[in-house]
Design a protein around this nucleic acid. Structure first.
Length: 465
DNA sequence: TTTTGAGTTGTTCGA
DNA sequence: GTCGAACAACTCAAA
């Protein structure tokens, strides 16, 4: 052993279990220093939900390390300065990290690695943020599949590359800055007891709860008024659970479980795509769509963010997001489709807003899903998919329970009129004590016209015209 | 090389 | 109201 101390630089892997960077460091060195850098460039743009989630998970990680006789060292600044300085201060010979695919992280890590190199400090990168590392899931031709299903087939049959086994290094009991207090730890509404706790101990309980209902996932995943999804997105974002542990605990013994694990393949796929093509954060995966003329509809965009478009299912989702930092997946698709297709606002504006506000806001996932919805990215469908927000609401929230929760001014309407109050008879509305345009906005756009407008706009840039 | 099969999450129209 | 076909109709991966 050439050096007896190593730094483990935590970023979005805030756990000790099933963490290959942590394991590799504790196996190879006599002592490890656990470090987190509060980078204002990351913390600043985070909405309150994600920031509070981060602070809660950091405190939980610190508590866990203290229980082991160590501590978490938290420092504020630019990692390109903080990491080499800290490594030198503690005579560490190697810095261990779990790698991340976002272009910001890739550029940052390259700069840090170069700075460490000039000081003779080594770098050990692991892929503990994903089930399979980028490049490990290939088509027969050796490339990265541009269609999900063939990717998933290979993903599911490819054995996991083994992660290092941890050792018994001493964890240094060093801390100086305190973790900012922030607000209460945000979690998805129905979690109680230990499942409401921050960090990996809470995440373990949340994972067990998700596994308990996973058999029903196929039936319940699209109903936003119930807890039918895993609700693990923020745990995966901050790494309080390992995607491999999640896949193992959920298992594949029933169709619902297999469908839920399949979602982890989507997560890997979007990360692999961004890793291969960093420009996806701003450029369409299908290049012809760079020529689309989007509308600068500032009033429409503002109405969308504030949940007052006049479309109850859309507004319910946008208000849930604003209030909690989280939105049900089905509603994310519908609200995103409404912005891009019905308002013809550039998907990048919506992507930026979601990424700011979401508790789980994660560049590869957010960009991949927005490009999918916008039709500029990885959707294998041969037709132009435009969601009808009224039909989607009637199909997935038939009684209007979700709408009533988040748009209380509509709560008095019956299930028949709550999805399209403008179509209800004036007497029905009056009976509910409700005036359209006063108590709740009239629709800000005509669905049929805006649909035709979107089709024409996309058609105009189709290749071969 | 050419061909063939298949593709997360849809909507509308007309019988 | 229900059902099946049509719809803005293509691209990728594998054989």
């Amino acid at each position: 052993m050439t050096d007896d101390c190593a730094v483990v630089w935590f970023r979005r892997d805030l756990r000790l279990d099933d963490n290959p960077a942590w394991a590799a460091a504790t196996a190879a060195h006599g002592a490890v220093l656990a470090l987190f850098v509060l980078d204002p460039r990351l913390v600043g743009p985070s909405g309150p939900a994600r920031r509070d989630r981060l602070f809660g998970d950091l405190r939980a990680l610190q508590k866990r390390l203290r229980d082991h006789g160590g501590d978490l060292l938290v420092r504020t600044g630019d990692p390109v300065e903080v990491i080499p300085a800290t490594a030198q201060e503690f005579s560490a010979g190697t810095v261990y990290v779990n790698l991340d695919v976002s272009p910001f992280a890739v550029v940052r890590d390259a700069a840090v690695r170069q700075a460490l190199d000039t000081h003779g400090v080594g770098w050990n990168g692991q892929w503990g943020t994903l089930a399979h590392p980028p490049g490990a899931v290939r088509t027969a031709a050796g490339g990265l599949s541009q269609v999900f299903t063939p990717f998933h087939k290979v993903w599911a049959r490819t054995p996991w590359t083994p992660w290092p086994i941890g050792g018994d290094a001493t964890v240094l009991a060093i801390s100086d800055e305190s973790i900012p207090s922030g607000g209460p730890y945000p979690f998805v509404a129905d979690q109680h007891g230990s499942a409401a706790q921050p960090g990996e101990l809470g995440a373990g309980a949340r994972l067990l709860a998700a596994a308990d209902r996973a058999d029903r996932y196929g039936d319940e995943r699209n109903t936003p008024s119930i807890h039918g999804t895993s609700e693990l997105s923020a745990d995966l974002k901050f790494g309080t659970i390992s995607p491999r542990t999640a896949a193992q605990v959920i298992g594949e013994s029933t169709p619902g479980r297999a469908a839920l694990v399949r979602q982890l393949a989507w997560r890997d796929w979007y990360a692999h795509l961004l890793h291969a093509t960093p420009a996806l954060v701003h450029s369409p995966m299908k290049p012809q769509y760079a020529a689309i003329t989007w509308l600068d509809d500032d009033a429409g965009f503002l109405a969308w963010t504030e949940g007052r478009t006049g479309f109850p299912f859309v507004d319910a989702g946008m208000r849930q997001l604003r209030a909690t930092g989280w939105m049900h997946n089905r509603v994310r698709m519908v609200t995103a489709s409404f912005l891009v297709k019905n308002l013809l606002v550039d998907w990048r504006r919506g992507e930026a807003y979601f990424r700011h506000v979401l508790v789980d806001g994660d560049t590869p996932q957010n960009v991949g899903n927005w490009q999918w919805v916008a039709g500029t990215g990885p959707d294998a469908s041969p037709y132009n998919r435009i969601f009808n927000p009224v039909l989607q609401g009637q199909r997935f929230d038939p009684e209007g329970a979700y709408i009533r929760t988040w748009v209380p001014e509509l709560a008095g309407l019956d299930a028949a009129s709550i999805h399209e109050p403008w179509a209800a008879g004036p007497l029905d509305l009056a009976a509910a004590g409700f005036t359209l345009g006063v108590d709740y906005p009239s629709p800000i756009v005509d669905l049929r016209e805006s649909r035709q407008r979107a089709l024409a706009t996309y058609e105009a840039v189709r290749p071969g015209r």
